[in-house]
Computed example of a mutant assay.
Amino acid sequence: MKNEIDWTLARKNFNPKTKQPFKRGRNWAIVAYPDSLPENWKDIIRQEPIAISPLHDKDINPDGTKKKPHYHLLLSYKGNKSFEQMDQIARALRAPIPERVNSLTGAARYLTHMDNPEKYQYDSSFIETYGGFDLESCLALSTGDKRQALRDMLTFISENNIMHLKDFADYCMSEEAPAGWFELLTERNTLFIKEYIKSNWQKIQSSNADKER
């Protein structure tokens, strides 16, 4: 017999990634599972500024097995919220602990795996929003965001001595890549980045040749 979880009990504020407590923040994410959610779960969160992903029922684990179906919930407030406030919502949904979101745009785009082409691509038209959540502005990278992202991409190429476009493209497709990198690489900047990588390779080769003299 499985141990029943007491969802009325507050949970410890502990980030398993950093081993430190979550600080207060405006943007939070919760993963929820259909077999645990109460029947009226959408009524519980309807007043919150929230975006709900399509049901992720086609995700695959690294070993090829199917992941347990789940929803990604993204909450974005005008003011900071504490872990305890967000955990109260997560417990009402019978969900794992909430986690702070560093990039709202990245988290919004992850609702359908927009920047992760190696993963199943869910239909963004099935994203549901409540509480005035502005999905359109979250999904779009502004012109300033794109310029800064391109600068960051070039810095990454230089600092990591990237010498092949494939290596950089593989990184842009990975979960570690910042939001929008794959889009920027494939939609408009492929030729420029390819030439930058080529130039970086030539500079490294030239430097190595000078050292051998």
Results as ranks from 00 to 15, higher is better:
Y33Q: 05
Q85V: 10
D63F: 00
L185S: 12
N102T: 14
P16W: 09
G180Y: 10
I193T: 03
L73H: 07
S206T: 13
T186E: 12
E176S: 11
H56K: 01
W201A: 15
E212Y: 05
K66T: 00
W201L: 15
E187C: 09
E195I: 09
A107V: 04
G25H: 02
E175M: 03
D134R: 14
K68L: 04
D210V: 12
I197A: 10
S142N: 11
R94S: 10
R151Q: 15
I45W: 12
K166G: 08
Y33V: 10
E159F: 07
I5H: 08
D167E: 11
M173E: 09
Q88W: 01
T112Q: 01
N27E: 04
K67F: 00
G25C: 06
W201K: 15
G131E: 05
D152V: 00
A51C: 06
L141I: 02
A107K: 06
E99C: 08
P54T: 06
K203D: 13
F126I: 02
A90M: 05
K17F: 07
L37E: 11
Q85S: 14
R24W: 02
E183H: 10
Q88M: 14
W201T: 13
Y33L: 10
K198A: 10
R100W: 00
R91I: 05
K66D: 00
E4G: 07
R109M: 05
A32E: 07
E176A: 12
P178R: 03
I97H: 05
E175V: 00
S207C: 04
K2I: 13
A179D: 07
N61K: 07
L74H: 06
F182V: 11
P16H: 10
D6G: 04
S199G: 09
N161A: 12
P54H: 01
K42N: 11
S207E: 15
E128V: 11
E159P: 00
P21N: 08
N27P: 00
D87W: 09
W181Y: 14
P38R: 14
P178L: 04
E136T: 12
I44V: 15
F192Q: 01
M163S: 13
H113D: 04
L135V: 07
I30F: 05
Q202F: 10
E136K: 14
M114T: 05
I204T: 05
N160L: 02
L37V: 05
S82N: 07
S36C: 13
S174W: 12
R213L: 12
A140C: 07
D170M: 08
D123L: 00
S199M: 03
R91T: 08
K42T: 14
F14I: 12
I5W: 03
T155F: 13
